[in-house]
C-alpha cells in the first residue's frame, strides 16, 4: 500500500459514507432489511452454541430436570382446573351484571436472542417478526409479569423495550386501592407510576398491575411492587417507584400478546 494516499479518494470515501448514513436515517425501509441481516449474522454464533449446548447436556441433568418438570406440570394442572372453575363462575357473575369481557387473546412465544449493549435502559431482540404474526406495540410478558412491549417488528426479529426503558409507557393500577396512573421506565432496573393524585394513600409494598385502558396490555398483568412514593417537582401529583417482578435480564423465553 503506497504511503501517500490521494486526498481526493479520502473525500470521495467520506462523501459516500455520509450519503449512506443519511439514506439510512431518512429511508428507514432500506434500513429494516440491513438491520435484520446484521442482527441475524451477529447472533448466529450464539444460536449455534445454544443448540450444541442443549444437545450435549448430560443425561442425569435431563432426567432430574424432567422429574421436576413433571411434578410442576401436575401441580399446575391442578391449579388450572381450579382456576377454570373460578373463571367460569366469574363469567356467570359478569353475565349477570351485564359486563362485556374478552377472555381470549392471541399470543406468540419467543426467545431472546440479543440484548441492548447498554444495560441501564433495557431492550432486547426476540426471534419472532412480522412473518410469525408479530405486531408493533405487542405486550411482552414472562411467567412473573410484564416485561415490556415491541417497538419495532422486523421480518424475522423484533425489538422489545423493557418496562424500565424511558420510552416505555403503559396504563397501570394499584391493586386494592384501584388508583390509576401511567407506568413509565426510570432506567437502572426500575419503573415509576406517574400522576397519582396528591390525596391518594399509597403504601410501599403495594402491587401494581396493568389497567387495560391502553388496549395494548391485557388487564391484570403483574407489573411490580411499589418501593417508594414521592411528590413530583411541580407538586401537582405523586409518583411511585416500582421494582418489577419480572427478571429483566434473565428471561430467555417470553410471551407476546398480539391481540387482546
Amino acid at each position: 500500500m503506497p504511503k501517500e494516499f490521494p486526498k481526493y479518494k479520502n473525500r470521495i470515501f467520506t462523501a459516500c459514507v455520509f450519503a449512506v448514513v443519511l439514506s439510512l436515517l431518512f429511508f428507514p425501509s432500506v434500513f429494516a432489511g440491513i438491520k435484520d441481516l446484521t442482527v441475524r449474522t451477529l447472533t448466529a454464533p450464539f444460536t449455534v452454541y445454544k443448540k450444541l449446548e442443549r444437545h450435549f447436556r448430560s443425561r442425569d441433568r435431563l432426567i432430574e430436570s424432567n422429574k421436576a418438570l413433571r411434578k410442576r406440570v401436575a401441580d399446575l394442572s391442578l391449579k388450572i382446573a381450579r382456576l377454570d372453575d373460578i373463571c367460569r363462575e366469574n363469567v356467570r357473575l359478569r353475565a349477570l351484571l351485564q359486563f362485556k369481557e374478552k377472555f381470549d387473546f392471541k399470543t406468540i412465544s419467543a426467545e431472546v436472542i440479543a440484548r441492548e449493549p447498554d444495560d441501564w435502559r433495557g431492550a432486547f431482540i426476540i426471534d419472532r417478526g412480522l412473518r410469525d404474526g408479530m405486531k408493533t406495540r405487542a405486550a411482552v410478558c414472562s411467567a412473573k409479569g410484564l416485561l415490556g412491549k415491541v417497538v419495532e417488528a422486523g421480518i424475522d426479529t423484533s425489538l422489545v423495550i423493557l418496562l424500565t426503558h424511558p420510552n416505555f409507557k403503559a396504563g397501570g393500577v394499584i391493586k386494592g386501592s384501584r388508583i390509576n396512573g401511567v407506568i413509565t421506565g426510570a432506567g437502572k432496573g426500575m419503573a415509576k407510576m406517574l400522576y397519582i393524585p396528591m390525596s391518594a394513600d399509597v403504601e410501599t409494598g403495594a402491587v401494581v398491575t396493568t389497567s387495560g385502558l391502553s388496549r395494548i396490555f391485557p388487564k391484570g398483568i403483574l407489573v411490580g411492587e411499589i418501593v417508594s412514593v414521592e411528590k413530583s417537582r411541580t407538586g401537582l401529583y405523586k409518583y411511585a417507584m416500582i421494582r418489577p417482578f419480572a427478571d429483566l435480564f434473565d428471561e430467555e423465553e417470553v410471551l407476546c400478546v398480539v391481540d387482546i
Binding site: V39, L42, E116, P117, V151, L159, H165, N167
Partner: peptide
C-alpha cells in the same frame, strides 16, 4: 450498536 438499541440508531 445502533442496530441493537431501541430508538438509539
Amino acid at each position: 450498536r445502533g442496530v441493537f438499541s431501541a430508538c438509539m440508531f
